[in-house]
Design a protein around this nucleic acid. Structure first.
Lengths: 325, 325
DNA sequence: GTCGCCAATGCAAGCGCTTTTATTTCGATT
DNA sequence: AATCGAAATAAAAGCGCTTGCATTGGCGAC
């Protein structure tokens, strides 16, 4: 040892300024010499903090979450907080399990996707006093701290643009809406716009399907087999739209001449597609970053813990054309 | 309480079979009633295990890692082990930091990408007795437990195929090779094949660049400005290849008629591209899964802890054509 | 009925750290 | 040189759990 008590070592590690420079350097030398690392368990037990936050996302395979997580993780790491990630595969029960599992691991903060979940879960979180932030969705009057955007309004804006371009036979490929408020809001938004013009979205023109390339392609093939076929397919995200474009090509049709397609998210993919995808731009990385900062403020019991809303924007590329051109 | 000692509660939670059915059910009732969760720190301190494994990957934004992690995480979760993910952004120093940070958090297992890293790090891991698995790369005689494939051989096979199709002016867009043995091996593999036919890959025909879409496009533009221009661009991964295809289109050229392109990884993207990408198929998900199982065996000190090698395969789609057709 | 044995449970000692409180040290002041 | 106070450090009490060992109780064998 460096001739000091464990208390001093602890102080050197946690509040270096409270220790005299001379002792501090001696301790630091010893730490370096023995390649000492404090024991996490001991620390967690004594201080009752783990400096860990948990995120439960649907899947890492969706680029939007991967990107958001990356930003989240970077922002948290700056303050020495570790991120633990679990996935639910879009299953609400599994999400609840994962949250409980992470609670058991003593995470002292949560980042959760969307708002739709069992009230009992919210109650548990509050009772334990574990702060959390809901990401990726936002609506007026959401009672929890959120960092997101208005999925419904964004989808509505996209659908309005579609209608402005003269489309009347509108079909939609949505994500699975059960337990997914983002997917639900996007369908609602499209409905809003259609209804406002006296149109509807009946069952035959709306398919819910997992957010996967092949699933999107299958759905598009089904929608396009109708007579008369839709002039536009509005998709719940970019991956579904990519699938739809694949299907269109495989049917010998041409986008946007025969059928227009729109996406949602604006991931890299949208740029690569041919034609490039008209979609809704969502600032995933900035949301991840903002979520981290909001969560840190909540943990620190700071005052400024208001929800953060991001604006989305229509990005018009080549996949959406006016009807009949 | 349920009228038992804490010791019994601990046993109910950890080795239920050692407690009589009657007591066990009483304890379980109490646990459920109070919504009790064991304190992670206490547990870690007393048992000196955290049931956590750490993974340090370059970035979650690359689909291959996202996919591998997803599989890894699912396989680990089955046995109650939690995955903690950190990212290095392809920076060896940062990777070392992250490994030490995770060690400090008491992870009792590691999944690391590739083999190239400071020997001191390996020493630290061994000294601490923390088992680890290297993923995504494999070579004969690797002294550590690996789950991967032979990047060099796979790249060589791809290059051979390119040469078999008559290409002689071969250019390559590689990832940054510093501290990245996969990227390095892929360049070597291509060189192997070229050298075997008396060709070379001089500086003007090899560009190293980050694995990003735009970077790939820029590199392709530079390569294609040469006279005579290359007939094929071999890319270090699919994202770079997608960028190259974008650049080719933006230059008014056509793939594969004017220039062929090949990728590496076979992510979803490869299928969507136009023309669809000829690439090397890598079983990312299965690697993640196998890595989890190998690590669990190492932790359990089982005998069967041999490295796992996966086969890769050429997937021929439309982006590579024979020269002069 | 007694004894011995094993399964089931309780007891109590830590695990390595943080933190409150007490003690020492040292410099400044008189 | 003595005194005081502030700053620096040590002492010691847990944090909530696991686990080796001691104890209890129940049962079968004699």
């Amino acid at each position: 040892m460096a001739g000091v008590s464990t208390a001093t070592v602890s102080r050197v590690l946690n509040e270096p300024e409270r220790v005299s420079a001379k002792t501090r350097s001696r301790v630091e030398a010893a730490v370096a010499h023995f390649d000492y690392t404090p024991h996490f368990g001991g620390r967690a037990l004594a201080s009752n903090r783990t400096n860990t936050v948990g995120a439960v996302i649907p899947t890492m395979e969706n680029a939007i979450f991967a990107r958001g997580l990356q930003a989240l993780q970077e922002a948290l790491a700056e303050t020495g907080v570790t991120l633990v990630v679990a996935t639910s595969n879009y299953d609400p029960e599994r999400e609840a399990q994962q949250i409980r599992a992470l609670l058991g691991r003593g995470v002292d903060g949560f980042v959760l996707i969307g708002e739709a979940r069992d009230p009992a879960l919210y109650e548990t979180l509050e009772r334990r006093g574990v702060p959390f932030v809901l990401v990726w969705s936002w609506r007026p009057d959401c009672p929890w701290p959120c960092v997101g955007f208005d999925n419904r309004a964004a989808a509505r804006a996209m659908a309005q643009r579609v209608l402005d371009l003269g489309h009347r036979r509108v079909a939609m490929i949505a994500g699975i809406t059960r337990g997914n408020d983002r997917a639900t809001a996007r369908v609602k938004g499209v409905r809003d716009a259609l209804t406002a013009r006296g149109l509807g979205l009946d069952e035959s023109n709306l398919i819910e399907t997992p957010y996967q390339l092949e699933a999107g392609a299958d759905a598009a093939r089904r929608l396009l087999s109708a007579t008369p076929r839709p002039t536009v397919i509005v998709c719940g995200n970019d991956v579904l739209a990519a699938g739809a474009l694949m299907a269109i090509r495989s049917l010998g049709l041409n986008a946007p001449d025969d059928v227009s397609v729109t996406g949602f998210d604006d991931i890299d993919l949208a740029l690569i597609l041919d034609p490039p995808l008209t979609t809704v731009h969502v600032p995933h990385r900035r949301m991840g970053d903002a979520a981290a900062r909001l969560l840190l403020r909540l943990r620190a019991q700071e005052d400024d813990t208001a929800s953060v809303v991001f604006e989305t924007g229509l990005v018009e590329r080549g996949s959406l054309a006016s009807v009949g051109t």
